[in-house]
Design a protein around this nucleic acid. Structure first.
Lengths: 185, 185
DNA sequence: ACCTGAACACCGTTCAAGT
DNA sequence: ACCTGAACACCGTTCAAGT
């Protein structure tokens, strides 16, 4: 890559990171290009879709979340590990408002730039769920896809301003529904 | 209202009903005006906001759902009544894709045209929940706002194409979390 | 090889001009 | 009293023209 191209790309990523964090994942791409001092075509050349831009920005975080699942799998108790990971995953998507809807699409769309990341994330969660189930800590009649749906539902709720004051309660209720022991977490 | 104004209004409502049902609650208002054979300004004159248009279209359905809660309250067992109503409410919002996000905003925004309808709906659900709790059929540590959040989360999930095949399972899991008896519904 | 921005086809919203 | 559609300020996306 030519040096000027790399400079533009880096600048775009830096600005996009700020703008997405501020305005959510549906922020204007035109605005990002403008703030990066770059032509709109340059943004599209480097990142052909919004998903591609987000994927580049968030890949490291997705991988960190998957790695975190591996970590929790060897350290904490099976049920606690699962709940902690559900919580951290929900909080992560909240830090990138609007991304959970894109992730729900991407996980079924092999052409999406976010597809691989989402599949990886779901697999990481599935491993934690399976371990908890093996130890009788999580309900048996639940699979990784359903767990991903529940996390997505929590993440979406978290994004709703009307819901904010009840975020923790709702998390506990749904996490409680996943575990065998019904006591709040 | 002048006869021609009423004709335009009726025409707009008829077309909007079709277009929203087809394309979801975020359909283009310009498109609706065009299809109704009416100037865009006429749409705005009759319905100053998208919410106002939706409210006029859906008020009857909202009221029917609230009435249905009253009906279920006197007929069915408390737990079944609650779950059936949760289901019917979820299905209703699904028939109007995109409306649940607007409802979540509207319930906190007294200025929204949808505010009253949402508050009424939440109150109807709260009554069913309270009865179920009084009979020991629903968990005690839950209030009407939280129930509304759970229904909203289910409604949002229902709208996600990626989730569709698991819609029924997820409903059972969350409805199960509301009830005291953990058995699936 | 890469960048730019005009061009195109859309939005939501407002409002001057018409009947 | 009501209607119309141009006008304005935005989108996402593409692509001819420039360096």
């Amino acid at each position: 890559m030519r040096a000027d191209a790399k400079k533009n790309r880096d600048r775009l990523l830096a600005v996009a990171g700020e703008v997405f964090a501020e305005q959510g994942a549906d922020a204007s791409l035109r605005d990002i290009a403008r703030k990066a001092g770059v032509g709109l075509g340059t943004l599209y050349r480097h990142f052909p879709t919004r998903e591609a831009l987000l994927e580049t920005l968030l890949r490291a975080s997705f991988e960190a979340l998957a790695a975190r699942a591996g970590e929790l799998e060897t350290s904490d108790s099976a049920d606690e590990a699962l709940v902690v990971w559900m919580h951290e995953t929900t909080e992560f998507t909240y830090s990138q408002r609007g991304i959970i809807a894109l992730m729900m699409d991407a996980i079924e769309d092999t052409n999406s730039a976010l597809h691989a990341s989402c599949v990886m994330l779901r697999a990481a969660g599935t491993a934690l769920l399976t371990r908890a189930q093996a130890e009788g800590k999580a309900r048996d009649d639940l699979n990784g896809e359903e767990l991903f749906d529940l996390i997505a539902a929590l993440a979406w709720l978290r994004e709703q301003p009307a819901h904010a004051p009840r975020a923790d309660r709702l998390f506990d209720i749904i996490a409680g529904a996943v575990l065998t022991d019904r006591a709040d977490v």
